[in-house]
Design a protein around this nucleic acid. Structure first.
Length: 857
RNA sequence: GCCGAGGUGGCGGAACCGGCAGACGCGGCCGACUUAAAAUCGGCUGCCCGCAAGGGCGUGCGAGUUCAAAUCUCGCCCUCGGCACCA
């Protein structure tokens, strides 16, 4: 094993060079330890002498092993943090663990262990993995969400939200997964309505659950001004919130021999212009008036339908999707515009949770209503028509809603343009108190309860006398019991844990029972970045001074799969905290970048069960962390991701070794060649020196821009190009001269954020060789481009004739358009192609970069 | 069906503003070094015709705008992600 501190080459040495081999497995741990000892990456949060920069990447779930996907997320973010440090910013780049969640519980049930033990063991392992990649994390600020010092503040927040009416308890149908219990609406995925975690089909259950009032913020969440987020995420959130403008219209039930009538039936419609076309009404099976409106002779059928709808999983509801189902209640409603009696039906295509849970059906102008009307033989009446189509029969719903349409069969409103007619109808009805303009959202309140052990206990006590009683702040945290007995079941073990369950009522002191539901684990990630600033603070959730100074986060990175979960909840939570008077910001993350996802080699998501997981440790052992980091950045655009393939990592490894050899041994000509090689293309020495300098500074300019624009793949490519240039001059008379030396320095500085170990090692050796005292490359300032050097003296202009490339010409940088044109026309090749004809036009394109000679005939 | 992202050599990808298509890397072929191999170094490598000089064709498909289109417009096809009867 060679020592790493002595200079690798004798300056001016001739002949076969002897330099140390590049051994990443030796130098990487060495530097990691050194950085640690020196506290090089400790962030002083109190330091206000430099501009702050809060860089954050989504913390991982500690599932046992970091796989290459985690590295893919963290590496460029780490490089970015380092890049900002080199720009003199006080960078905070923390990490932690999203430690509550289902996999821990599954593992615990399977292996008969405690989820806490499983989780903490995994975290311990993942910490060492993170360290091996050489990230600048300051571990003093680590947050582990399953620790009471963190989750007690979830409970504290919950109590504050409760006080402010932002948390509430309600019985209603919830999405229910047989494995995971209650799910938030956001956690049900796909056309087949499966659980986001386990993939099981989701059912509906009528349960009493805790909710957070996210819908209070629906409009505000639609406003993305002031944050720089990727367009697709904004679009997804916008669609998810699903604001739609329309009107609420009051229908009234008609009296008949079975019931007195007069009940209000409210409906929401976005098409009030079609009100005269309502030929029946449909209630969701869950609608509260279903029982009242059902006629005795229809009761059996209706009850059966409602029961079946409740029992059906969403998946079944979908499989019968082609054919609409429904039953007639026997009752009628009065259409407020024309007092017409229309039948009231029940069908599961109307959703209980959206709008009012009831619709006016306008089969002529709605595809679903049309299908339903056809199936059950209900009337279809056209009330909107395009010019000249007033009486055209409908063989499908007419839904175009174009500007030139007008109303027909709509009483006094007939003939009006559809939009205006709609407005006037609402106006007329609203004077009688029967309609009002309304906005409806698809967004639902956040279903917050989970029937699991491994989460934050909801700090609520149920007392027979006092009802629902919040746990007093002084009694927080409500701790999870240390021992847990799953009894082989999947059911929440807290339900059977007498020592947890039994509690005195904080109000009356009588016997009471604890809430056994825990919080959705998305609560943790909804505010964790605030906690990073003061992870051990025990008299409050956040340090308000530090929060004011450091948040919002300047740059957040993470996957787009969290678009309508974590990234939406975080925005909600921040706004709620603002309204609780805790912070004075509206948004959590100023700038967001979504990196792509690394898939397994089979193109599927990496998972242990599929056996397609790539372990970064193996790669690090073989190539070193620096090469793995560079490779992950080089693979392709960061927002793209893609299937994992090791193909190509050799190339990056080769590149690092070349950097090594160039930096330590400029004269090496392998092997055995004694004399300096020739300069390329008959360049003289001064041209060669200028060329080196120009290449280095052009690279610096481009690489800086690439870092800023998150183009890490081309950043690495440009460093490779510079290395290729230097390689050409290696062993020539200009190698080792001041321009060469500067180029190597720039190369190492540019490489430092991406490949921190090898650049640090080579930097140290250079300082040592010059007899200078050691200082870390990572505390060096980012170099400044010498634009004069970057500009080349001459450049090549491609020449086109009629748009086709025919020739090239080398011209001086400052050439004028006229001179360039003359040079081009004088070219032998151009004259040949012109064959005596006069060009119609000569186009000197974009900054004299290209010339196109146009000639006809 | 609706919304979003994308389609470029054998492969990953580059070309950011309409201006040399294929940077950089992988793979492949040839050569140097070596007893040999590895490593390293050098050259070639979009497809077709041609000994060559050179020419033709090429960015999913088809039209169009332009001196000039991977890039802009229109119409299609395909892949991936999201939504899922939202009245």
């Amino acid at each position: 094993m060679t020592t790493t501190s002595e200079p690798g080459t004798k300056a001016g040495g001739r002949g076969r060079s002897r330099i140390d081999r590049y051994e990443p497995t030796v130098i990487e741990p060495k530097w990691q330890q050194r950085w640690d000892e020196l506290g090089l990456y400790e962030t002083d949060l109190e330091d206000t002498s430099r501009p702050k920069s809060y860089i954050l990447t989504m913390y991982p779930y500690p599932s046992g092993d970091l796989h290459i996907g985690h590295w893919y997320i963290v590496t460029p973010t780490d490089a970015l943090a380092r890049f900002h440090r080199m720009h003199g910013e006080n960078v905070f780049f923390p990490i932690g663990f999203d430690a509550f969640g289902l996999p821990a519980e599954n593992a615990a049930i399977k292996n008969g262990i405690n989820p806490l033990d499983w989780t903490m063991r995994n975290i311990e392992h993942e910490r060492t993995q993170f360290r091996s990649m050489g990230a600048v994390f300051d571990w003093r600020y680590e947050v582990v969400t399953c620790e009471p010092e963190f989750y007690r503040w979830n409970q504290w927040f919950f109590l504050r939200l409760l006080e402010h009416g932002l948390a509430y308890r309600r019985r209603s149908p919830v999405d229910w997964c047989p494995n995971d219990g209650t799910l938030a609406r956001e956690q049900v995925e796909g056309a087949d309505r499966h659980c986001w975690r386990c993939g099981m089909p989701v059912e509906k259950r009528d349960l009493e659950q805790w909710y957070l009032r996210t819908t209070n913020y629906a409009d505000e969440l639609l406003d993305f001004s002031g944050i720089d987020w990727p367009e697709p995420i904004k679009v997804q959130q916008t669609n998810w919130i699903g604001r739609s403008e329309g009107a609420e219209v009051v229908f009234t039930t008609a009296p008949d021999d079975a019931q007195p009538g007069g009940d209000e039936l409210r409906v929401f419609t976005t098409r009030p212009d079609t009100l005269f076309g309502a030929t029946f009404m449909v209630l969701a099976p869950e609608h509260p008036l279903v029982a009242t409106l059902t006629h005795p002779d229809r009761r059996a059928e209706v009850d059966a339908y409602v029961a079946a709808a409740a029992r059906r999983t969403e998946i079944e509801r979908l499989s019968t999707e082609r054919e609409k189902t429904g039953v007639f209640t026997g009752s009628y409603a009065i259409n407020p515009v024309d007092d017409e009696r229309i039948p009231i039906w029940i069908a599961d295509y109307v959703l209980g949770g959206y709008g009012t849970g009831a619709i006016m059906a306008v089969p002529a102008h709605d595809e679903r209503d049309f299908a339903f009307a056809q199936r059950f033989g209900l009337a279809i009446r056209r009330v909107v028509a395009a010019p000249g189509t007033d009486d055209e029969p409908l063989d499908a719903a007419f839904v175009s809603h174009a500007d030139d349409e007008h109303l027909v069969n709509s009483g006094e409103f007939s003939g009006l343009p559809a939009d205006e007619g709609g407005r006037r109808i609402v106006n007329a009805l609203s004077k009688r108190g029967l309609a009002k303009a309304t906005v409806t959202y698809r967004l639902r309140d956040w279903t917050f309860s989970r029937q699991r052990y491994w989460g934050t206990p909801i700090p609520i006590i149920y007392c027979d006398r006092d009802g629902v009683v919040p746990v007093p702040d002084a009694d927080l945290p409500v701790r999870l019991p240390d021992t847990v007995d799953y009894g082989g079941r999947g059911e929440n073990p807290l339900n059977h844990d007498e020592s947890f369950l039994r509690v005195e009522c904080p109000r009356c002191g009588g016997p009471a029972r604890r809430e056994t539901d825990t919080m959705d684990t998305f609560v943790d990630s909804s505010w964790y970045w605030f906690r990073y600033l003061s992870p051990h603070k025990d008299d409050g959730p956040i340090d308000r001074e530090l929060v004011a100074r450091w948040t919002p986060v300047d740059q957040y990175t993470g996957g787009a799969e969290h678009a309508v979960m974590h990234l939406l909840y975080s925005r909600f939570w921040t706004k709620a905290m603002r309204d609780l008077g805790l912070v004075d910001q509206d948004e959590p993350f100023k700038r967001l970048f979504n990196q792509g996802q690394i898939l397994g080699a089979d193109g599927e998501r990496m998972s242990k069960s599929r056996g397609n997981v790539q372990d970064p440790d193996d790669l690090v052992a073989k190539y070193g962390a620096d090469s793995v980091r560079l490779f992950l950045m080089f693979m392709g655009p960061w927002d793209q991701g893609g299937p994992w393939s090791e193909t190509g990592i050799e190339g990056v490894y080769r590149f690092v070794r070349r950097v090594w050899a160039l930096a330590l041994d400029p004269h090496g000509r392998e092997p055995g060649e004694g004399s300096a090689g020739p300069l390329p293309d008959g360049q003289d020495e001064s041209a060669a020196r200028a060329a080196i300098r120009s290449a280095a500074h052009r690279t610096l300019r481009d690489v800086t821009q690439d870092y800023e624009g998150f183009r890490f793949n081309t950043m690495v490519a440009k460093l490779m190009e510079l290395v290729n240039v230097l390689q050409r001059y290696r062993g020539t008379s200009v190698a080792g001269l001041s321009e060469w030396d500067e180029a190597i320095s720039l190369l190492l500085l540019m490489l430092a954020p991406a490949a921190p170990h090898v650049s640090e090692e080579l930097w140290a050796r250079r300082l040592d060789a010059r007899g200078e005292e050691w200082r870390s490359i990572h505390t060096e300032p980012w170099p400044v481009v010498d634009e004069r050097a970057a500009a080349a003296e001459t450049y090549e202009v491609p020449i086109q004739v009629n748009g086709k490339l025919r020739d090239r010409i080398e011209v001086p940088t400052g050439i004028s358009e006229i001179e360039l044109e003359q040079l081009v026309l004088a070219r032998e090749r151009v004259r040949e192609l012109l064959a005596g004809r006069t060009p119609d036009r000569v186009i000197v394109a974009g900054g004299r970069r290209l010339v196109n000679v146009v000639v006809r005939g």
